[in-house]
Structures are given as C-alpha cells and as structure tokens.
Amino acid sequence: MSVSFPNVYTHRKVADTASKPCELCYKPSTSVLVTPENKDFFFVCPGHLKDKGFCSPIIDEAAVAAKKKKEMEAEIERVKKEFEEKQKKKKEKEKEKEKEKGKEKEKDKNKKDDEKDKNPEEKKKTDEAGAVAPEEEPRIFSLKKAFYSQRLDKKRNAEIAKRNRERLQNPDFFPSVPKDLP
C-alpha cells in the first residue's frame, strides 16, 4: 500500500471557528490546501501561499484567456455606448443651434450646463475605470519538491503507524507460549 496523490492543491477557506494552526508557522489560519478527492489537506497561512519557495500557482491558461476576452468585449461595448451618447448630444446641440441662432446669451448658458453635465459623467467613467476588480488570487497550487515529499512522508508514516496499531490489537500477532515441555 503506497500513498500517492497528485501535487495539485486547491486553496479553500474555512470559518473562523474552524481555524487550526498553520503547518509551517503554527499561527491560527483559516486557509486550507486540499488535494483532489480529499486525500491530503493541511492548514497554511495566506502569506505562505505567496512565498515562491513554498508553492507555485497553477494558472489555467484557457480560463485566463476567456476572462481577458470577456473584459475586452465589455470594454468595446462600453466605448460603443459612449460614442453613441456623444453622437446623440452632438445632434441635439446642432438642433439647438439652429433654433437659437439669434440668442447668444442662451447659448452661453447651454454651454455652461453642458459642461456641468460632462463633469459628473467624466467622474463616473474614471470611477468605472478605477473600479476594475482586483485580480483574483490563484486557487490551485503545486508544492515545491521538498514540501511535497514531506507531505508524502507524513502520510506514509501515518499509514504505517495505523497498520502497526491494528497489528498490536490482533492477539495472533504475538508469539504463543510453548505448550510441550523440553
């Protein structure tokens, strides 16, 4: 019986009440690394996940490409809407100019109103651009060779200890006392 599992760990969070000590520094942590099929898991601080000497993120290239494509399509759609709004405003201004050719004072007022209207819209645009969602932290990691072999050894030793405990519970494991006299 050999213990083996892939070197692919998924990062998960648990409730604060279920926190346990980090495997490396023993500080309470709510982050857990779990292998597929739950063969191995251990608690680790989020700071250790960023450490290049401990683990490296596994990035799903297809998901990243799909996310970028979706963001580009959203950006294109937003720019199209902005352009259409500007075209509508331009047409409205042209109509107003035709109607009010002789009234210079009202034009000045309209320009001021338009400038006031533009400022909040520009603020919204900059807020939207600045409010781009922060990049998600990677969820899938692979441990460095030394840490992965340490996890394998720990699982193997636990399995051996379990087997030894079961053997000790079995009365046939110990030798019996000799029955015939010498």
Score class of each variant (00 low, 15 high):
Cys25Gly: 15
Glu98Gly: 13
Lys81Ser: 06
Lys13Asp: 06
Glu122Lys: 14
Val64His: 00
Glu135Phe: 00
Pro171Ser: 13
Lys86Cys: 05
Lys81Ala: 13
Glu84Gly: 07
Val14Ala: 10
Asp180Cys: 09
Glu135Val: 00
Lys97Trp: 03
Glu71Asp: 05
Arg151Trp: 03
Ser4Met: 11
Glu37Phe: 10
Pro6Gly: 06
Lys39Gly: 08
Asn170Thr: 12
Asp117Tyr: 13
Pro138Gln: 00
Arg165Gln: 13
Lys109Trp: 06
Thr17Asn: 07
Asp113Glu: 13
Lys39Phe: 05
Lys97Ala: 06
Val8Tyr: 02
Tyr9Ala: 11
Arg165Thr: 14
Lys80Leu: 04
Lys13Leu: 08
Asp40Ser: 14
Leu143Ala: 09
Val14Gly: 09
Gln169Thr: 14
Asp117Gly: 15
Ser29Gly: 10
Lys154Phe: 03
Leu143Met: 09
Lys27Cys: 05
Glu159Asn: 12
Arg139Asp: 00
Glu100Asp: 12
Val34Ile: 10
Asn119Cys: 07
Glu82Trp: 05
Val3Ala: 09
Leu143Asp: 08
Pro120Trp: 05
Glu92Trp: 06
Arg151Leu: 09
Glu122His: 12
Lys112Asp: 09
Lys81Ile: 12
Ala133Asn: 00
Ser29Phe: 10
Pro36Gly: 11
Arg156Glu: 03
Tyr26Gly: 12
Glu128Pro: 08
Asp51His: 14
Glu96Gln: 10
Phe141Gln: 08
Met72Lys: 11
Pro57Cys: 08
Leu181Thr: 10
Glu37Val: 15
His11Ile: 08
Ser19Gly: 12
Glu136Leu: 04
Lys70Ser: 04
Ser31Asp: 08
Lys154Met: 07
Lys39Arg: 11
Met72His: 03
Pro134Thr: 00
Pro6Ile: 12
Pro178Gly: 03
Ser19Thr: 15
Ser176Lys: 09
Ser2Glu: 09
Glu23Phe: 13
Glu61Ile: 14
Thr35Val: 11
Lys50Phe: 01
Lys107His: 15
Asp127Cys: 10
Pro46Ser: 07
Val3Gln: 01
Leu33Gly: 07
Phe173Leu: 03
Glu94Asn: 13
Thr30His: 07
Glu159Gln: 13
Ser142Met: 08
Leu143Pro: 08
Asp127Leu: 11
Lys109Ser: 11
Lys162Thr: 12
Phe41Lys: 01
Glu84Met: 12
Tyr26Cys: 14
Lys91Gly: 02
Asn164Arg: 14
Val64Lys: 01
Lys162Tyr: 10
Lys145Asp: 06
Tyr26Leu: 12
His11Met: 02
Lys69Pro: 03
Arg139Cys: 01
Lys95Ala: 10
Ser31Leu: 08
Asp60Tyr: 05
Glu23Asn: 14
Pro182Gln: 13
Lys101Phe: 01
Pro175Gln: 07
Val14Lys: 11
Arg12Gln: 10
Ala161Trp: 05
Glu100Leu: 15
Asp108Tyr: 14
Pro175Asp: 05
Glu136Met: 05
Ser142Gly: 07
Asp113Val: 15
Cys25His: 15
Lys13Thr: 15
Glu92Thr: 10
Ala63Asp: 10
Asp153Glu: 07
Glu106Trp: 09
Lys145Arg: 11
Glu37Pro: 06
Lys155Gly: 02
Arg156Leu: 08
Phe42Gln: 04
Lys124Tyr: 05
Lys97Asn: 05
Glu122Val: 14
